[in-house]
Amino acid sequence: MKYIKIYILRNKKFKNQNINFLKIKPFNCPNYNFFGNEIRRSLLLNIKKTMTITNIKFFISKSKSKHPKKLKIFHPVNEFFDIEEIKENLSNICINLKKLRFKFNPKNNKEKKTFIILNSFNKKSFSAKDIIIPSTSNLKIVNLKEHLFNKISQKINLKVLIKIENNENYFYNPIKRINFILEKNNNIGKYIILDLNSDININPFKAFIESLKYLNLNNT
């Protein structure tokens, strides 16, 4: 068994990112540069366990139908369709939606995907706050103030169906930037300083500890 001593120098949350400074002192480590680089590589390669949007679909219907007793029928609409009642293009809405970040604490390990819905009936500007999340799943949107689109008139209803998945094939890395520095002190000796920037939906310290599982330090 090998022991590692970790100091948390700084741990801050910002609007767009989380910043963490860690000081690491591994025992009996001949090559510090190798150890630091392995941590950096495993953080970039292996941390992918976050929920991301994989599919978006749009549906529209008329708000006033001729037969009021009839059910409203929603028709599917493709991404390149322009709607006069909404100011942005649908492809621009897709770009806005993909800026959303989620937090997820699954009850079961089997639960891997959920669906969320955005209904727009009124005339106003819609943001991430208006998205409906099913009560059964433990999903949370982190950036609720993100602007999505403006609706100008009430003639039409727009419904957006969003699929959120933990798909490993879909590439998304929550860690924005990582760097390591080797330093030397007379009292402690050599040590590593990790500089970690991540997205707001994960805790960088937890990600660091998770990355240590994947390390293969037999060569040291």
Partner: peptide
């Protein structure tokens, strides 16, 4: 090539 293998600046990008 993957991001990991790319050369990086002194601040890590």
């Amino acid at each position: 090539i993957p991001i990991v293998d790319m050369p990086y600046l002194p601040d890590g990008t």
